[in-house]
Amino acid sequence: MTKMLAVFKEEEKAAKATEELEKAGHTNENFDILTGSPYPEGAFGEAEPKHHLYVYPLVGAFVGFSMGLLLTIATQSAWPLVVGGKPILSIPAMMIPMYEGTMLGAILFTIAGILFESRLPNLKGGLYDPRITEGYVGITIEVAKKDAGELQKLLEKAGAEEVLRRES
């Protein structure tokens, strides 16, 4: 298989190139887009990224709440000293550490979720060009070795500044 990265200076040409790719029978499952800043969804006809990020804070909040509940109940029952005439298990006072626990859990799980769902850290690397962060648009695609030459021509014709290749 051959991995390719076509670098486009103009975003219009890159968008056009993705159309050409689709005409040539490559689906948007095959290719991926690399950009230096976010673009509106669908600008390059890319596949819609599916994620489950919204689940993470809920799970985190539940875990955090449970920890908070456990902590407040356990510490108060382990040293049951009445202070200021308040009950040992004072719900209004317990609510505050419990609330902070809930939020902390939600935040920590969300952060973990962001990294996991973005597939970071990405140790494998992959084809990349520093010009991407200068406003160039990259299209990565993987094809069988025998089709590589033809595809390279297609991308160059569509306006790619350069096509990087890596055989595997």
Binding site: D32, I33, L34, G36, P38, A106, T110, I114, L115
Partner: peptide, 24 residues
Amino acid sequence: MGWRGTPRQWKLQIVAGFLLSALL
């Protein structure tokens, strides 16, 4: 961490901004 700037990464970056804002 090997950031490349794929649509998936950008989308999550933006969703994360909203989500963490709402949580913080």
